[in-house]
Design a protein around this nucleic acid. Structure first.
Lengths: 361, 361
DNA sequence: CCAAGCGATGAAACCGTTTGCGTACGGACT
DNA sequence: AGTCCGTACGCAAACGGTTTCATCGCTTGG
């Protein structure tokens, strides 16, 4: 139980602290035989250097802060898997900040940064102000944003291509013959949802279809709202009723499908539904959900890699990358279409001969 | 950018370091006026004490380690919400260890503990060996287990009452008239799944029903397996086919429902399905899933509270609670039945004379 | 055979804070 | 007015490492 110090190890192995320290930092300046000996002693006594002392002396920690908006989101969990994989490999540990409200967020910034507790910051938040982060970054603290990209902010970031994902989703639907496609939105304060909606609109226009405002419903990721607005959609008279729905998330899609069932509509026979995310249960439910998969764990890996590189190979401090604005890495990662069973061809309710061919060539 | 030290603040306010330090630790020995002055100076220059130096001098950190088996589980995410709430309130930060494999787990123990990096450990892992943890605990490091209870281990823990939850689920089913109830198991290496299965068996026996081995299927939380074993269930001739299924998790229940649909069976008309967990999408899918809810965030809160209390009010070190075995808190929290729509009365296919009808529609 | 060179090790300063102890100060009591 | 006491503050020694620099002993070239 007696906490061993480097001094003890030095005494035990008949050397001085400095030599032991050199061994710890595997400097090439120590004789291999000596090194082996010291290592043996350390192992024998289960010595582990004091974290605090090392941090103090070195002036840096192997800690990176990760700010997330609650872990219950599929996105956050998946990103973390990627992040953990690379931080682990590089000997970093993660300090997790669940930024539930603004108060914490503000004090967090102070704590983490100024106390130089963490030597880098990974931010997965959506609604928090980003300015403090920019300032920190300019002061030399590595920061990278994941899925938080905001147009006017100058920070390295990793993001999914939500716009292109929406395009892909819409293309899939239109390829199946759909033209009256509704959109049940997520939280439009989020950049990602804005992008998805832009994709929805653009895809329609590109196909020569005038977006019908009636077919856009705010869902805001609130179950009740999603359900009730979807019901409105399905209550529309047959000609105006959408034949397909683009939902801004998988869980949103679930709500849409439930509303459809309540309206007596079958998925995908009567109405097609496509989601966004590809959460775990998407493949398990009935019908299996066709959706746009976001490469979250890969995004986590990339972000963590960027951060680790910015922090530096080990502990040197030539870190002033904020000045050279040669390249602020902004990774935008492609999404992929996962075809399952919730989307089908447009129903043939419209008379056999009336198949409007107006769709884009 | 120039990092301020306590010395700078002392100079700036015309005092000595120690006085400033006293202010930092709000000792009563400093004159209120002086205190105000110092605080003003600190605020003005945005001074935050060095984390590392404080840790070194005090000999303890306000960090607690949290070991989890991947964040993608609903359980882990929810627990974390509770944990974060209380740690935040008590000025602790969380170091997150995603224990993906054993190698990391072993080195983790060393790192965290011996380096006295964290002053407490919260463990949510399932399959890792627990012995190192009890050793640590005996050496004075506060440890609490969440949902990892293992019969032979002497550690404080917080757990859901899986056994009783299973009983509740089965009661619900039997109240609806079901007698041929199948069980699709989770990963039986987990204590929680063992308990759920025990509950299943006992509930049956208590009702005077002899459990039919045919109706127990291993699922192991693997989608394909769940699906295929469920198909076996539904392929049984009408008299032997279960009228209800108790699934060891919500996602497992999804798989069961899919298999049912593939067999042409409707839920809940032809077969009832009950889950376990109450994940977010359980209310969103079709039909909404009746399930047993585990109070994860409350469990997280409780566990964190226990840990914080064990660590001590602030930084004193009269920590040898392991010796006094007066009470090793083992919290077992009740689950609750969430009735939605996936369970219904037993189908009336069985006629008064009692034998089969053709199975499917 | 001596001086220079080099590699390995030791001594000491330092990182920023806490903390026990000592001191100077002011007020009260005699 | 002189002691005494309590109080508010300063000094310096830890805390456990890292890192620079000097030193020591040995090899090597002339």
């Amino acid at each position: 139980m007696a906490k061993l110090t480097i001094r003890d190890i030095a005494a035990l192995s008949g050397l001085s602290k400095s030599t032991v320290s050199l061994v710890l930092n595997n400097s090439p300046k120590v004789d291999p035989a000596t090194r082996r000996h010291v290592l043996a002693v350390m192992r024998k006594h289960r010595y582990v250097p004091s974290f605090a002392a090392t941090a103090l002396a070195k002036g840096s920690t192997r800690l990176i802060g990760m700010v997330v908006p609650g872990l219950s989101w599929h996105m956050v969990a998946s990103i973390n898997i990627g992040v953990a994989a690379v931080t682990e490999r590089n000997g970093f540990d993660i300090i997790l900040y669940t930024a539930t409200n603004d108060r914490d967020y503000g004090s967090l910034i102070d704590r983490v940064l100024t106390s130089s507790m963490a030597s880098g910051l990974l931010v997965v938040s959506h609604e928090q102000p980003l300015e403090p982060l920019v300032q920190l970054h300019q002061e030399g603290l590595p920061v990278v944003l994941v899925n938080t990209i905001d147009a006017d902010v100058d920070l390295p970031s990793v993001t999914a291509d939500n716009y292109e994902g929406a395009l892909t989703a819409m293309d899939h639907l239109m390829q199946l013959g759909h033209e009256r496609i509704a959109c049940v939105q997520g939280r439009m304060a989020y950049r990602c949802c804005q992008d998805r909606y832009r994709g929805y609109l653009d895809a329609l226009r590109t196909a020569g279809i005038q977006p019908d405002p009636e077919l856009t419903k705010p869902g805001d990721f609130v179950p009740e709202q999603i359900r009730s607005r979807s019901r409105e959609l399905f209550a529309l008279p047959a000609g105006q009723r959408p034949t397909a729905v683009f939902a801004h998330s998988d869980v949103t899609a679930y709500g849409v499908m439930t509303a459809a069932a309540e309206a007596g509509l079958r998925v995908p026979e009567d109405v097609s539904v496509i989601g966004f995310d590809d959460i775990e249960s998407a493949a398990q439910i009935r019908p299996p959900l066709t959706t746009i998969q976001q490469p979250f764990v890969e995004m986590g890996k990339r972000a963590a890699t960027m951060l680790v590189e910015a922090i530096g190979p080990n502990d040197d401090e030539p870190e002033e990358p904020a000045t050279g604005e040669v390249e602020l890495p902004r990774l935008v990662m492609p999404t992929s279409l996962i075809v399952r069973a919730s989307c089908g061809p447009v129903p043939v309710t419209r008379s056999p001969r009336g198949r409007s061919q107006t769709a884009k060539a």
